[in-house]
Nucleic acid binder design. Structure first.
Length: 497
DNA sequence: TGAAATGTTGGGGCG
DNA sequence: ACGCCCCAACATTTC
């Protein structure tokens, strides 16, 4: 019988997988395929993807199936596959990145009319097209979006793995996982990632089982990078190793009370932030590259490459920043509070374009997600629609003292600071030479001096912003004059400024 | 999902 | 007892 092609994308799981469920219901043997494409470009993401695909292969094998691996442009590859095995149907879950949407359009237009395409909105809670303001425009601010989205249809219960799956046999040439070259070689930098994570559906479900720990303290401790409170589900959710519905269900089932605990409520809200980012990317496809607020087109950036490198390597001389950047490099992940701190430092203290930071994050995070990443960076840079006001500039020392009060986080990732008394640990340059020597951390030798003075940098950032505003005002004034000219002379008596 | 600058208040030391 | 000053603590404004 002609197979149903199951094009797996960011739904690398068997449970609660709408495309899989529908393909199974069709009664046809299933042919699961993953197409490695240009979207799979982040180095840490590729490491993760390897593990996730290996896990999926194993799960399929247990059930008598196998995963066809291809690489290249999905539309022509899937068209060839359908033609070759005489398939009349393709099932997949939709994605919302501009490139991914173009793939879907290309697929639907290139397939023979005899091939039915079944696509599912399976990765998010809400339907991006349906959540709109009363004026019919997309929401730009989170809170009204959240109110509208959470008033939507009830979130369905997750579905189990279909009990009896039948898989298609085929003679299509599959690449091996090794062929895809997803793992780093020479050097193998992935040791810290292997120690920290278990990619794949099994690992995701294990992590989900521990959600209770997260929700019990999440509301109080989620901003504390020194405490292991957050769920760490982000990479599993990104690759769809668990569905967002499974996450919601697990969170709702925590605690003894029927009413959600403060931690559960806060965590659910975070899932809506995830939805909101994808929603913004759907409605504003330029989100990854262009500031949503036009003032920032005029922002005078410095874009110093040695400052960027100091930031990337965790050598800025500000311990909370460097600890975060080293945690990222080593484990492929960074605590969210620290992401905000390092991002603020890059954008405001170093005046480097947020896109450089976004690129680095996309390359080094195991949970790298175009929507979350772009929305997050625009938020920090102050250029998003619902962004932190530009003048909110994090003081890395105060943030360190507030959210890592004992310095455990900083000491863990910067062992050179270990012996330093807590009062110096977030500002080691204030320790006397004698203290530095007795604690084996001589600044400039064992740990860098700060590459900028935050007090000075803050003032520079504020004047840079003022400059952007001035230029923007000038620019829109001249645009106004131009459009006045185009519109012809104004009638007499109209007041002009 | 800030932080600095500036303003206000009130207690205590002191002549 | 009183006025004066200092400054910590808190509040408000500003960036």
């Amino acid at each position: 019988m002609a197979p149903a092609i199951l094009w797996l994308r960011r739904n690398l799981r068997l449970a609660d997988n709408q495309a899989l469920i529908a393909a199974a219901k069709s009664g046809r043997p299933i042919l699961p395929v993953y197409v490695l494409d240009e979207l799979d470009s982040g180095e840490a993401s590729r490491w993760w993807l390897h593990g996730s695909l290996a896990s999926l292969q194993k799960q399929l094998h247990i059930r008598g199936g196998s995963l066809l691996l291809l690489s290249g442009s999905p539309a022509p590859l899937l068209r060839q596959l359908a033609a070759r095995c005489g398939s009349g149907s393709i099932y997949y879950c939709r994605r919302y990145e501009p490139i991914a949407r173009a793939q879907e359009t290309a697929l639907e237009t290139s397939l023979a009319t005899s091939v039915e395409v079944h696509s599912f909105s399976d990765s998010y809670l809400g339907n991006h097209k349906n959540i709109l303001t009363n004026g019919g425009t997309p929401f730009r601010i989170f809170t009204p979006y959240w109110k509208s989205a959470s008033a939507g249809p009830e979130i369905p219960q997750p579905q189990p793995v279909p009990p009896r799956l039948s898989f298609a046999s085929h003679d299509h040439k599959s690449q091996t996982l090794a062929d895809l070259k997803l793992l780093p070689r020479q050097p193998d930098w992935a040791g810290g990632l292997r120690d920290t994570w278990t990619p794949g559906e099994e690992g995701a479900l294990e992590r989900l089982d521990k959600i209770e720990n997260a929700t019990s303290n999440y509301a109080l401790e989620r901003d504390r990078p020194d405490i292991d409170t957050t769920s760490r589900l982000s990479p599993h959710l990104h690759f769809g190793e668990i569905s967002v519905r499974q996450a919601v269900n697990a969170i709702r089932n925590t605690g003894a009370n029927p009413a959600p605990s403060p931690g559960a409520a806060a965590l659910l809200r975070q899932l809506y932030w995830r939805d909101f980012s994808a929603y913004l990317l759907f409605h504003f496809p330029a989100l990854p590259t262009a500031p949503l607020r036009a003032v920032f087109d005029h922002f005078p950036c410095t874009d110093d490459s040695s400052d960027l490198e100091a930031w990337q390597r965790g050598m800025t001389g500000y311990p909370i920043v460097d600890a975060g950047m080293r945690q990222l490099w080593s484990s492929g992940w960074m605590h969210n509070r620290v992401r905000m701190i390092v991002a603020s430092f890059l954008v405001k203290d170093l005046l480097i374009p947020w896109q450089r930071g976004a690129d680095w994050f996309l390359n080094t995070l195991v949970d790298a997600d175009l929507a979350n990443n772009s929305a997050g960076w625009q938020w920090v840079a102050g250029c998003g629609t619902d962004a932190a006001p530009y003048f909110r500039i994090f003081n890395p020392v105060l943030q360190g003292k507030k959210f890592d009060p004992d310095g455990h986080y900083v000491r863990r990732w910067i062992p050179q600071l270990d012996a330093l008394p807590t009062k110096f640990v977030h500002e080691p340059w204030t320790a006397s030479m004698e203290t530095q020597l007795s604690c084996n951390v001589l600044l400039g030798r064992d740990y860098p001096q700060p590459i900028v003075d935050h007090g000075v940098a803050r003032k520079d950032a504020l004047s840079a912003y003022q400059q952007a505003r001035d230029r923007y005002a000038l620019d829109s004034a001249s645009e106004q004059r131009n459009s006045d000219l185009e519109a012809g002379p104004r009638s007499p008596g109209v007041k002009q400024r």
